[in-house]
Write a protein that binds this DNA or RNA. Structure first.
Lengths: 366, 366
DNA sequence: ACGCTAATGGAAACCGTTGTCAGATTCACC
DNA sequence: GGTGAATCTGACAACGGTTTCCATTAGCGT
């Protein structure tokens, strides 16, 4: 048998109809509405199609005519290695893919690296809608997506007027962490966060950069921390925040190093993601700091590995996040008001948080 | 500013041309060939487009005319949770996505769960080519892909006459593991493998099922083990092989339990993936077996977590695998002969393999 | 003023379908 | 044989673009 020879010129619905001596409609019906023609004729059509190597109606032409692409686009301007190496992001991807699979539509990953300003890929994507995941509010790709006349759902960030969105209540979630630490007695804390804007800054963060961050989620989390710690009598202006552009365990470690080198009096390192927290843990170990006796470390996301090592973190349902976004997009008939879905989060106290070391307790090698 | 109002009827290139009093050609040129019209006119076109809320040429119509979809399809009939939860699979995905990004084309995940026999999604996917990753040779989706008149590249399996393929040399790779174990002195071994066919069988595997496996990779690995151990004087027919349909750590554990319950004399458990090996390790711990003193465990793939815990395994370059497949597909101009690319593998001896416990050495609690 | 070339914009064919609607055919039944 | 219903079929108009010629105009040297 083998696969059919690829003829010089592909057979089309029209040529097939001609060969059979029937109209194009009939051939089309043979594929799309079997009840509209006699079984016998249908059999003949399909058989001739096989003989001619006709692969069935062209999907693109069909899409054009039916105005349905049968796919949803996914825009994530992050570096791809981020999307695939952070279990939290992979979870979102999985959830989204599951929702698409349920609906029988494809998931189209739009090529858009952070560097490339080339927005053409967004315009070229034949999709019925977009899911936008965690991009800065000033991203040109995002703007291009919003220009397209298709429904859009944003996951996490940015938060845009009039656009459907799904994400956790970041402020509340971070509040739980802050409250936990405050209750434990921590007053000297440091923060490690992910990138705040499209320009790289692997360094401490100024107050203006904090409040002007283009990544809504990171900004919200920092603000929530500021509120909580201020309420506990801590001067937020004095709390060091270190930013990392890339999102890897190693970057978390280097950030922790920078933070602890400059502020050795810190008793707790708050990280805005588990990946960064894993890095902070590694750095603590390197320094001979016991966790949590000498240093408390907290994360955010609740990835599997965090759970395995007992990291204190806030868990958010990443798979649900992706699934919900997908369903929301796929169900967006003529909905009137834009929807914002907030997912629940849960503080998971692990083995990496405890009361701060006391002042007279020797901190580092005596 | 806000996003433009969505008019009742979308503006088209034609309506824009009418509004401007120019031909469609000119509008098209304004977008696609700026050098073909005066800058002044182009400015006017673009400006009017903005005013009318015209989002630029429709991607689907463009695809139809240019016969380029600007996307490659990815078919993996596995359960999606498999694809996203096995780091090895995620690595392949990442590599493929990177290759697509480099070429500026989208990556279209085709919805195709193992259960659903609905092949329509394959027909409906507007793509310029397909990458097929690890599907059984008798999968209907695969057949549908091969009917489509676009280039196809297969990763890992199946191995099909006339179709490009990229994958490791599984036989050689497994041979390294086998040789390692034989050299250490193991003669009583057991195997845990992934699914061998589309029908579930969470049990021991018969000889016929082994040789008739529809997953080429698993079959090859088993055959290579058979050859190597037979050469070392081991009767392969007496070597128990346990199969698991799902590919999770828990399944690896349950398989190990089943294996060790029935064959307590086994000194080494060979797993055809790291994920399964991690499960076997967990089961060993549960039984109080020390690894490698009481039991040797080996994996396959070389995922990060395996490296962290020092699992003896064969590393294959998963990211490269995906990237290579993508590049191969995208470069497939009028290539004459089908290409088969074999990727290098490397035995990584870790802390989970050692010489077998001696007979008189107490094995379990004395 | 003339002819030549280059720049610019337009006409029309084409990409491969689907869907509507009216007309044709068949068939049972009186 | 006539009639109405049921079943098929085919013509035609979209769907929204791109691209290959052509025609027109403008620029310019002589």
């Amino acid at each position: 048998m083998g696969r059919p020879i690829r003829t010089r010129r592909q057979a089309t619905l029209a040529s097939l109809a001609a060969e059979l001596g029937v109209s194009r409609t009939t051939v089309s019906n043979a594929y799309n509405r079997p009840d509209q023609l006699s079984p016998e004729l249908r059999r003949r059509v399909l058989e001739t199609a096989r003989r001619l190597g006709y692969p069935g109606p062209d999907p693109v032409a069909r899409s054009l005519r039916t105005r349905k692409a049968g796919a949803v686009g996914l825009l994530l301007t992050e570096n791809l290695s981020y999307a695939f190496r952070d279990p939290a992001a992979v979870g979102v991807l999985e959830g989204l893919a599951l929702a698409c699979e349920d609906a029988g539509v494809g998931l189209h990953l739009v090529p858009a690296s952070p560097g490339r300003e080339d927005v053409a890929a967004v315009h070229r994507a034949g999709v019925d809608g977009f899911v936008v995941y965690s991009v800065p509010d000033d991203d040109p790709h995002l703007a291009a997506v919003l220009e397209r006349p298709v429904p859009t759902v944003i996951i996490d960030q940015p938060s845009l007027e009039g656009i459907d969105r799904v994400g956790p209540d970041d402020a509340a979630a971070v509040g739980k962490i802050a409250e936990h630490l405050v209750t434990l007695g921590h007053r000297q804390v440091g923060v490690i966060c992910m990138r705040l804007a499209r320009e790289r800054n692997d360094d401490f963060v100024s107050a203006t950069r904090q409040s002007g961050a283009h990544f809504h989620v990171q900004r919200t989390r920092l603000e929530a921390l500021a509120v909580a710690f201020s309420a506990a009598g801590v001067d937020w202006a004095g709390v060091p925040v270190v930013e990392r552009f890339d999102h890897t365990v190693d970057d978390g470690a280097s950030a922790a190093r920078q933070l602890l080198d400059a502020y050795p009096q810190i008793t707790a390192v708050i990280c805005t993601s588990d990946i960064l927290a894993l890095g902070a843990m590694a750095e603590a170990e390197r320094r001979g700091l016991r966790v949590p006796q000498d240093l408390t470390v907290t994360g955010f996301d609740g990835i599997a590995e965090a759970e395995r090592i007992g990291l204190t973190t806030v868990h958010q349902p990443v798979l649900e996040k992706g699934k919900t976004a997908g369903r929301l997009l796929l169900s967006s008939g003529e909905r009137s008001a834009p929807k914002v879905i907030t997912l629940p989060t849960e503080l998971r106290v692990g083995r990496t948080s405890g009361p701060p070391r006391t002042v007279d307790e020797p901190w580092f090698g005596g």
